[in-house]
């Protein structure tokens, strides 16, 4: 019980508080329970073939043990307490953002802030629209995200198919080339791409924002791994059933690998939506900016204090859509973003 007292001595500390307590308690938890281990990781291993879809069976009596009188204290101190602290640290800034976006300036520039807005207002959103062409910027972001993701995913699908299912020599050399491209961070190409796109007249255009990012090494790599797990018999059966490469791709491979493709698509969409550095470099007129770049502009034209209401409204616009998508489809997104971690 020394564990518990140590924890109590540190009640207000941050997420990392009471190290020994968390470790001790969890060690015990792992040893005792475990019927449900697959459920919690299902999100991570969603598309990694071996453990995919193992579901959340067995969420039965196993956890009840945590609430027996004997374990209740331990459960709260080493389970819920650290979790609550962590959740507070993670969630509070976002909640603060949403609330502030509905506060009038007087409630933001104050020494005695209240949690809820006293006079909730949507003026901040209107103010954002006053300062930057918000409709245009939102539309740009949506177009860039939609078109960019669509092209990237289609290219990833056809490339991965070609690399896995078309029998030609030297294709491994091409794959190696794509693998090396995977290691090149986009920042490295920033300056030369700026020169190329400028020379092509692509500054302050949507295609200029889109074009350099369309080649997809990440999606190709991820889908190739996935396609390789398909039974080759199935593809041969389709061939004997009279399906050429095009039909095999769209009628067999794509439907069967739909979950993995959805993962790649979601990760691509989120990445495109958040993309900042390249659009920042290639656009300088507000009408052609995407949302992150527009917000950067908004922040630089506003003085640091007093305008936080507008800035939080802007942040809500860029953050909340992704939060909604993530909440609905977190399984796919987490598995895509942690690829490679779970074998």
């Amino acid at each position: 019980m020394s564990v518990e007292s140590r924890n109590e001595a540190n009640p207000g500390a941050e997420a990392g508080a009471g190290n020994a307590g968390i470790i001790a308690g969890t060690g015990a938890g792992v040893a005792r329970t475990g019927a449900d281990t697959s459920g919690a990781v299902a999100g991570v291993s969603g598309t990694t073939s071996a453990r995919g879809g193992s579901g959340r069976s067995g969420r039965g009596p196993a956890w009840r043990e945590a609430f027996t009188p004997r374990h209740l204290g331990e459960t709260i101190l080493t389970g819920y307490l650290p979790l609550l602290i962590a959740l507070a640290v993670i969630v509070l800034p976002l909640v603060w953002m949403v609330i502030a976006s509905f506060k009038p300036p007087g409630e933001i520039v104050t020494l005695t802030p209240t949690l809820w807005p006293q006079e909730p207002t949507a003026d901040n959103y209107a103010a954002v629209a006053d300062r930057v062409p918000l409709g245009r910027i939102l539309l740009n972001s949506i177009i860039v995200t939609a078109v960019g993701s669509l092209i990237k995913v289609v290219l990833a699908i056809t490339s991965a198919y070609a690399l896995v299912f078309i029998k030609v020599r030297f294709k491994n050399i091409i794959f190696l080339g794509i693998l090396v491209a995977l290691m090149v961070p986009p920042e490295v190409a920033l300056l030369p791409n700026y020169m190329t796109i400028s020379a092509l007249g692509g500054r302050n255009t949507l295609w200029g924002i889109l074009l350099p990012g369309l080649g997809t090494a990440f999606g190709t790599f991820l889908l190739r791994q996935q396609f390789k797990t398909l039974p080759i018999d199935m593809l041969e059966a389709a061939e004997l059933d009279g399906a050429g490469h095009w039909k095999k791709l769209w009628k067999i491979v794509v439907p069967v690998c739909a979950p993995a493709i959805a993962t790649v698509a979601l990760v691509t969409i989120v990445t495109e939506w958040n993309s900042f550095m390249w659009p920042l470099v290639i656009t300088d007129t507000p009408e052609n900016m995407t949302l992150p770049v527009g917000l950067n502009l908004l922040q630089s034209v506003e003085g640091q204090t007093g305008s936080y209401g507008y800035l939080m409204a802007g942040a809500v616009l860029v953050i909340v859509p992704v939060l909604i998508v993530f909440a609905a489809l977190q399984r796919h997104i987490v598995s895509g973003l942690t690829q490679g971690a779970v074998k």
Partner: peptide, 16 residues
């Protein structure tokens, strides 16, 4: 195989 007009039953059945 696409145009050969033969049908094959696979050991694994290879159903879609």
């Amino acid at each position: 195989p696409t145009t050969r007009d033969v049908a094959m039953v696979f050991q694994s059945y290879a159903l879609y």
